[in-house]
Design a protein around this nucleic acid. Structure first.
Lengths: 280, 280
DNA sequence: AATTGTGAATACTTTCACAGCG
DNA sequence: CGCTGTGAAAGTATTCACAATT
């Protein structure tokens, strides 16, 4: 635990690289070992989704402008992002939707059917277990884990719920490399340690704690309370700082996307009773 | 929709400012109207959580180093972040936990009891509705909305479920300014338009679509599939690029936080059966 | 003596603007 | 021509290192 100091001269206060710490809070050398800038990687799934949509509506060629619009980014950024993957566009024409989609999916490892284990089957964990998007995106839920005797043995979508005590066996049997931590805060670190100790190298953490993991393990954190607090900050500023609050300063930057600003163009009201997102 | 072009000379391709588009995908002038850098705002809730923890364990003064460790960031970053709020530390000593906590909470508008409406009561929406952290963090869920007749009229935590058709009435009656969209993709834009048309200015979006909103409305997006895909990318690279894969390149940056790297220091195993995070 | 607050340096990201190509 | 791919410029964010302060 002191080689860091030895090697790094203990400047400010010997803090090693913050590494994977909080999800997108912003740290880490940006380019993992070689490749694509971190910020770009975070947008690739967005592009993929946009392409799937376009694909669905029969479009087979798309310009950077149109795709950027669908993804909610600027066209220059889209092109710069894609340029990190290779030259998959055709000058004067645009991108072939199917081809580009394939390339991005490949870059993200979508064809690899990553085995995922979900630990903690409270409301959130259950919501995740029911999430239909997993399979089509290259993930397979291979384990559902909870310590509650009332749940253990039951099945959810044909998958039996495993006792938390048997977590290690499950990991060994399934070879899961991605773990979802949807436990209460108190249990999160212990569960994480056990996951990491038995082959899991990527963790999606829903517990509102900062997880300690060995170097090389990736953690992304999703904290609902935190997201809301960030929104609250903006609301707060809105009332606090009435500098041009009411009227947007002219310039009419209007809308991010295609749809008109003020009110909706009467889209379809789908009566589906709100279950979790249902695929594209 | 052409004043933008008129004013901005139509360069690359007249894209207005990408504005609030995707949550942290990375755009937007960083400093909202005046103040604190966007990246800092995103970390303030983390600091707040860390302070609450320290507070709970009887600590009443903390140095930037210790707090940074608890928050999973570097000490310099912590100090820089806090410096945007004011000079709340004492040189040679550190920060008063209670005082700093209060200051950050104030900056985030935590005392203001923001009224929140949740639309869509599938697994995820229900998980959110059950989330105990809201109240203590300055939010009050004032509305639960779903179109399903089987749900309408039922109560959840003492709050009656409102029919989606009555959304506008609910917004008017409660004055909600923050909306959570937990509907299926197809309904998300329409719900958003209705929210925004009736006073909601901040939206937390769980549907995997890019929402179009008028300028001035803040959107944060949480997309589970996307988070996993980002993790998958790293897994993918891990196998793809075996350049020094096994052994982390020396330098032993080890752990992010306090806990020892390899395995856990035998933390408490709390048998609580995995429900959603349970407060601090 | 310890620790904050902060300019200056570095690193990363986004945006511009245009050459190059189909 | 239209649109991509990309260097160069601009804008943000992070990290360093130290003077100021208790």
């Amino acid at each position: 635990m002191s080689s860091a100091e030895t090697l790094r001269e203990a400047r400010d206060d010997a803090h090693p690289t913050p590494a994977e710490a909080a999800a997108d809070v912003g740290a880490e050398p940006t380019t993992a070992t070689k490749g694509i800038p971190r910020a770009t990687v975070a947008r690739l799934p967005v592009y993929l989704r946009a392409l799937a949509q376009l694909s669905g509506s029969g479009t087979d060629t798309v310009s950077s402008g149109a795709l950027a619009e669908a993804a909610g980014v600027g066209p220059a950024q889209l092109r710069k992002d894609l340029s990190h993957l290779g030259s998959y566009g055709i000058r004067g024409v645009g991108y072939d939707v199917a081809y580009l989609r394939f390339q991005i999916a490949r870059e993200l490892g979508e064809a690899e059917e990553w085995p995922v284990v979900i630990v903690g089957l409270g409301n959130l964990g259950t919501a995740l277990a029911n999430y239909s998007g997993f399979r089509s995106r290259g993930f397979r839920v291979v384990g559902l884990v909870d310590p509650d005797p009332a749940l253990v043995g039951q099945t959810l979508h044909g998958l039996a719920i495993t006792d938390l005590r048997d977590l290690e066996d499950l990991l060994a049997a399934t070879g899961a490399v991605i773990g979802v931590v949807a436990t209460p805060s108190e249990a999160a670190q212990e569960v994480t340690d056990r996951l990491v100790g038995h082959g899991v190298t990527s963790i999606l953490n829903f517990a509102p704690v900062v997880l300690a993991v060995p170097d090389g393990v990736h953690v992304r954190k999703v904290d609902l309370g935190q997201e809301l607090q960030i929104l609250a900050y903006h609301e707060h500023r809105r009332v606090e700082e009435p500098a041009g609050t009411r009227d947007d300063p002219v310039v009419a930057p209007g809308i991010i996307d295609g749809a008109p600003a003020g009110l909706p163009p009467a889209p379809v009201l789908v009566p589906t009773h709100g279950h979790l997102e249902g695929e594209d």
